[in-house]
Design a protein around this nucleic acid. Sequence first.
DNA 1: TTGATTGATAGATATTTTCGATTAACATGT
DNA 2: ACATGTTAATCGAAAATATCTATCAATCAA
Lengths: 297, 297
Amino acid sequence: MLEKLEFLLALAREKHFGRAAEACGVTQPTLSAGVKQIEDAFGVLLVNRGSRFRGFTAEGERVLEWARRIVGDARAMREEVLALKHGLAGRLRLAAVPTALPMVETLTTPFRARHPNVQFTVLTRTSTEVLHLLDNLEVDAGLTYLNNDLSGRVSAVPLYRESYRLLVAADGPLGHRDQVTWFDVAQVPLCLLTPDMQNRRIIDQYLRETGVEPTITLESDSMIVLYSHVRTGRWASVMPSRVAAMLGLTDVLRAIPIVGADTSYTIGLVAPAREPMMPLTAALVAEARRVAVLLAD
Amino acid sequence: MLEKLEFLLALAREKHFGRAAEACGVTQPTLSAGVKQIEDAFGVLLVNRGSRFRGFTAEGERVLEWARRIVGDARAMREEVLALKHGLAGRLRLAAVPTALPMVETLTTPFRARHPNVQFTVLTRTSTEVLHLLDNLEVDAGLTYLNNDLSGRVSAVPLYRESYRLLVAADGPLGHRDQVTWFDVAQVPLCLLTPDMQNRRIIDQYLRETGVEPTITLESDSMIVLYSHVRTGRWASVMPSRVAAMLGLTDVLRAIPIVGADTSYTIGLVAPAREPMMPLTAALVAEARRVAVLLAD
DNA sequence: TTGATTGATAGATATTTTCGATTAACATGT
DNA sequence: ACATGTTAATCGAAAATATCTATCAATCAA
């Protein structure tokens, strides 16, 4: 029955019987039969089908929520037993918003020193995608903005607050300044993240308030792309100060404080709000609490 | 796999492969194979076996805790779906300490008025047994003393506080008094619950403090036995006032307040501290909160 | 209408599960 | 020491279940 519940989760992810089956490593008829079996067991339709997948029924949504919980607990059980046997080991799957990526290291390095047998998978996602992946048990924890929406669904550990800097070559536009305003920033051509990223939306907000229409010369979902462009000395970008520091400032590259940006956006570790947590996740949360102290201003 | 976890729960209950198998409706080899299968899946021994059951290993205890949780959630899921389909229906299994038995009705009557398709099973147990049954998912809720031990394992709704009365015939010993002391009570021969009951231990405590060695003429685990003896006019007992009131006082039978018993023992509804609860349990807890208001002094 | 996509269905084949019978390992009492 | 009873593991056969391949029916898009 547990396997059938996993079928449901896959179906919710993929919204497609064939792909869900593939994700589960079975054929499509097998997955169809599995879903039908749960439906028969409850005597209720869970999935609306026309000749294609049309979402879940009300009952299906409820079952889905329970399935997430039950499957999550089953995995936690498995992991806990293995941790008892071999010590903490396994793979921690993380999803982080792009601006948090350079901070992942501050978490993983001390963690791995403590638990050498743990491996990591780190994905870049938008803040909404991070929460979605968490909900669907596709990652164990996320690094994202703590401000909005993530009501009670997750437990969060604040790590640091973003304050923004203009990243630019010393001989580039505004490169000689000791500080700039958002009005100044809005004058120069910028490399920024794509608009689906929360960081970009925050920066857009600041820029919009200046009343000037900024020029976004280059958009990317990759921080490395932004960084490598700025390094040439011909482009500028806006990054959280910690990210700028982490990227390593040469003498040609400067991170100039932007004044007048007092709104603060906290970034932190988020994990499924289940008690007890999976051992690896619990250990990561513990590490995050330690790191948070070190990062505190 | 879910079924296998139920095997584990049964084994924890029965501490015997054969009986556990019977409880699950399978043969002993089937249950043995099921347990071994979980062990193989985790690569860990869960049960200490000699030629007989010798309890669980450390890993086994952990798995057992998860199994309780997972199996409980699976049942909650099932019940919730059925509730969506047919409205609230099914069987609520309750366990109550003997002195709470007469109060069960104050819960079940309004509950059934609201949800006519719900059936009840009510068991009499000691307070420790009530908690044990709750832990093992053998009952959905309990009525017991809220004072001690039940740390965070259960969520509780206080219902009322016990204050004690001497139950005696008007022409029996002390029958003419308007109030008595515990010292008085200790002089007369009493019918009380057996010493494994918390109520009895509480009353023993009061009696002991008088310095007098009381005579317990009759012990029983049944309130009806005590009551029927007192009704004859030849015996006396000590009961919580609400219980005395519930039993219906004729003109021959009096419930005389016992003064100097200021320690209060709260009785309430306890349910597994899981969120979300099973729908039936949640509805019962809601009912308990309403009833608690009515019962408030 | 044609072609492509999607999920249900049917039938054959594997796999797993379950059971009854038996056995091995211990206790317990004589 | 020995017989006896209890308990759980083991074995082999039968039953139940799961999975696969192939195919079909419905729907959608051109």
